[in-house]
Design a binder for these strands. Structure first.
Lengths: 214, 214
DNA sequence: ACGTGTGAAGCATTTCACAGCG
DNA sequence: CGCTGTGAAATGCTTCACACGT
């Protein structure tokens, strides 16, 4: 048995974050040409402890070979499957401001299977452009039609904080099931919809705290 | 006794993150004109539990009045003091690409006391501009001089992943004590230097995981 | 012999429930 | 009386240490 379909056992949020990290590590390992890694190899590279890594994997099945280690290629496949990124996800970006363009400019999203398939923007002048880097650009009132039509499941909110709440409602109405919120606004979503907040200011404040008490 | 200087007792990382959230919440409360809040008010607004909030505060002292609640203004001051954001922090932004400009474009950093006092950039053509929005723009080799001169304590890495490692070394050599790393590169810093990573792709993968197992 | 997989121990964080105080 | 502050209980996560399979 290699891959255990995710069980009803609760998997810690922290485990999921670490799996993402392991996956990135393995990119490097693969580039270095190694075919096999041990949990301690990975631990050294990403600053955790080997037992932790084995436990993390154990939630999903038996990925390794006792006495040997993990076959890098298989392991990475298993991790991706565990995370649900063995496929590609259609996302909508809402807000074509500074931050929105920054997100479009980096390919770290595309590399990990998140495709921005549509952009929604309030400002008619921008919408006028029709598309940006081959990604179609729509006005807000098209959202209800486009999201289902394109099979978009994730919405990325990169508008100004005042508009975030309204946008989140619109996205949910349109059928989006996951929201990544880049604004500091605190949003509420109904059961069955997943919300994640990204707020660098919080990380900076964590830095400040540690620096202030060093 | 109101504010207890942070003790040697270990304060959970999660507590710090929540304090940042409470602080944002209180902005809203203040705007709404309320003078007093209870832990349950805050809990409702930011989706935690009242006991948690009281425990979080208790690490730092006694902020409230029994039988009454918290005076919004005092509370917010106390939280800011606890977090070390009752002052302003000089930061250097390294990398004037898409993401860098996005960071400059938002005032959510400035609002919270993080002032970007200098930008460092590799590309001579950009450096040629001399400044951006009144923030001076320098070439990389000026870093060793400028960082101490301006009293910069935090470095923000917004360059391409391949350059992140080198930049982190340069920042540390220049005397920066805290680093916020926006690249997916895994950095290592010496003891006494604080590193925080921001990686939206990880949050998206967390979303994907939950959506895939809904 | 070696490194994985895993129950059990150890540690940290969250929640409960009530004493304490205005 | 109401809501904070806080020990104690409950829960959750990480680390240990060893059995297991190759």
């Amino acid at each position: 048995m290699a891959f255990k379909k995710v069980s009803r056992i609760k998997i810690p949020e922290a485990t999921i974050r670490r799996l993402s990290l392991y996956d990135r590590c393995l990119d490097d390992v693969r580039k270095a040409g190694k075919k096999i890694v041990s949990s301690s190899d990975i631990a050294r590279k990403c600053g955790t402890n080997p037992a932790q890594i084995r436990k993390d994997f154990a939630y999903f099945g038996e990925f390794g070979v006792r006495g040997v280690g993990y076959y890098v290629e298989n392991l990475q496949e298993d991790i991706k499957k565990a995370l649900g990124i063995d496929r590609s996800w259609n996302c909508a970006l809402v807000g074509a401001g500074n931050l929105g363009f920054a997100l479009l400019g980096t390919d770290s999203l595309a590399e990990r299977g998140f495709r921005i398939s549509a952009i929604f923007e309030q400002d008619p002048i921008l919408v006028e452009m029709g598309s940006f880097r081959d990604i179609p650009l729509f006005s807000m009132d098209q959202m209800q039609r486009i999201v289902p039509e394109m099979g978009i499941r994730i919405g990325i909110i990169a508008v100004s904080p005042e508009n975030a709440l309204k946008v989140s409602h619109q996205l949910i109405d349109a059928g989006v099931k996951g929201i990544l919120n880049f604004t500091p606004a605190t949003l509420k979503v109904p059961l069955g919809t997943i919300l994640k907040n990204v707020d660098f200011a919080i990380d900076l404040e964590g830095l400040a705290f540690q620096l202030a008490n060093a």
